[in-house]
């Protein structure tokens, strides 16, 4: 998915990702972008929102909260070992 601030977000198979909040002012580039990854994997290339302030974009995982500033990164949610 590509958002209007040019954030690009893609999930791996069997993932559960929740978009909690998205707000973007295309004039000032101020905004808020909050997502949660509950299961699986997520790849993110952040857009204009994350360039403005380190607090503007956050990603929640079951064990942590990620603050994002202008970057490309991957998240995998821990799974119970099933071996």
């Amino acid at each position: 998915m590509t958002f209007i601030d040019n954030t690009r977000l893609s999930a791996g198979p069997n993932s559960n990702v929740e978009l909690t909040r998205f707000k973007f002012n295309s004039t000032t580039h101020d905004g808020a972008f909050q997502t949660s990854v509950n299961k699986g994997t997520l790849a993110i290339i952040s857009g204009q929102i994350a360039k403005r302030s380190p607090k503007a974009m956050t990603v929640r995982t079951p064990a942590s909260i990620l603050g994002v500033r202008g970057t490309r990164f991957l998240v995998k949610v821990g799974e119970e070992e099933s071996r």
């Binding site: 290339i45 995982t61 079951p62 064990a63 942590s64 990620l66 970057t71 490309r72 990164f73 991957l74 998240v75 995998k76 949610v77 821990g78 799974e79 119970e80 070992e81």
Partner: peptide
């Protein structure tokens, strides 16, 4: 217990 993994990538 299960651990979440976060990896920073270089730009494209």
């Amino acid at each position: 217990g299960p651990k979440d993994l976060i990896v920073l990538l270089p730009n494209e």
